[in-house]
């Protein structure tokens, strides 16, 4: 049913830390790999080894440059996947009921055996979170790895989305936003977690932690200071000799 639930018991989603992400695209690969193996019809590519390859991905990493008026430019890597919106416009436009938002945990899913491949949900999503599978012709989207997070066959450490599990810098966090004491809720509170496109009225669940301004917390700076102003011994002799050379 494409009517949205009036409330969800939990709000599962991701916090993505733009300060920590190094743009390695490991989450993209992990997502592609897991979903290609686990979704009913895979997550396919068309012409993958040809001249003009294309394929469906559920997570993509953009990179932006911020150039301040003064000082060095900052590079921000920006992973983007489904935000599992509370008011998900992709769900209500679906004519067949293939798209739905779960009342128990808020995850937005597609039942692909009901999908007619009209593409209207992808049009309705302002974030570009849905992509048509190029060979199966059904809509694919992030499932928040619903087949991992509740999977008791997996070790407990692995019961998080593949992107979160694989991130080498810990830039992605998974949790329940309806619980103010959860780690994700606290991260959002501490770091000023942002909604993307709040004016679109989609009420996204996922939050983004903005990059910290450069210089505010520079953990490496003390290590890069000159260690000795008046070196002694061999270094002192070298220093004095090189100075004399002019």
């Amino acid at each position: 049913m494409t009517s949205l639930p009036s409330h969800t018991d939990r709000k599962l989603g991701l916090v993505i830390d733009l300060d920590t992400c190094v743009g390695c695209h490991a989450c993209v690969v992990a997502c592609k790999g897991w979903n290609d193996a686990s979704q009913p019809s895979g997550l396919t590519d068309a012409n993958p080894y040809g001249a003009d390859p294309t394929g469906a991905f559920l997570n993509r990493v953009h990179s932006y440059e911020i150039q301040p008026d003064q000082g060095a430019a900052q590079l921000v890597h920006f992973p983007k996947s489904c935000l599992h919106c509370d008011d998900a416009p992709c769900v209500t436009v679906c004519p067949t009921g293939a798209s739905y938002k779960r009342q128990e945990d808020g995850i937005v899913l597609v039942n692909e055996s009901d999908c007619i491949g009209c593409g209207l949900c992808a049009w309705a999503c302002p974030y570009g979170a849905r992509e048509m599978d190029p060979t199966e012709q059904v809509m694919k989207k992030c499932t928040l790895c619903v087949d991992r997070i509740y999977n008791e066959e997996l070790p407990e450490d692995d019961r998080v989305p593949a992107c979160v599990r694989t991130c080498p810098t810990g830039a992605r966090h998974f949790g329940d936003f309806s619980d103010p004491g959860s780690a994700v809720s606290q991260l959002v509170a501490e770091r000023g977690g942002l909604e993307l496109m709040p004016e679109q009225g989609t009420k996204p669940v996922n939050r983004y932690l903005p990059p910290r301004p450069k210089g505010e917390i520079d953990v490496l700076a003390p290590l890069l200071e000159p260690v000795a102003d008046d070196p002694k011994g061999l270094l002192g002799w070298l220093d004095r000799t090189l100075e004399r050379l002019g």
Binding site: Y64, I66, L194, L196, M197, P198, P210, P211
Partner: peptide, 10 residues
């Protein structure tokens, strides 16, 4: 609004 990024020309 799309990126939430601030502090300069993006």
């Amino acid at each position: 609004t799309a990126t939430g990024l601030t502090g300069g020309t993006v």
